[in-house]
């Protein structure tokens, strides 16, 4: 189990190495990547801000939710903070399980829960201005 909020680039292979165990026949890794467009606008870069002291325990809680549902799963999660360029990895969730079906399901559970309950925010720098992304809303920076 490994949960990180970090300024440094994330290497998804390192998270996979952290969840590997001899009985794991499947590792499912989700990588979120900074995209060059949003809301029909060109995006130049992003800034992520975290409440790190709360974000890491929230990730740990999601890891426990996964263990409760898929007891053989092992989980690793990492999220970047700070300035990110297009194409960079912003978030990674890696889950190992004996078989692929539960690895896919548990990984999906992990990233969906992370997106709704881990206090990390995205500031989007786009062609038409700068916005805080709050759920499905984009709020212009005052």
């Amino acid at each position: 189990m490994r949960y990180d909020v970090q300024k440094e680039p994330i290497d998804p292979r390192e998270l996979e190495a952290a969840v590997t165990y001899p009985g794991a026949g499947a590792i499912c890794t989700f990588s979120g990547i900074v995209r060059d467009s949003s809301r029909g606008q060109t995006v130049t870069h992003l800034d992520y801000e975290a409440y790190a002291e709360m974000a890491v325990p929230q990730m740990r809680k999601i890891g426990q939710e996964i263990k409760d549902r898929w007891p053989e799963a092992r989980v690793a999660m990492a999220h970047r903070t700070g300035h990110l360029e297009i194409g960079e990895v912003s978030v990674v969730v890696s889950v190992s399980c004996p078989h692929r079906a539960e690895a896919f399901e548990a990984c999906r559970w992990g990233i969906d829960r992370l997106k709704e309950s881990v206090p990390i925010w995205k500031k989007e720098h786009a062609a038409d201005g700068t916005y805080w992304i709050e759920g499905d809303q984009a709020k212009p920076v005052a």
């Binding site: 409440y51 206090p119 990390i120 995205k122």
Partner: peptide
């Protein structure tokens, strides 16, 4: 105490 706006979420 912390007051927390909705997190990034979305379809990303």
């Amino acid at each position: 105490v912390a007051f927390i706006p909705p997190v990034s979420g979305g379809r990303g």
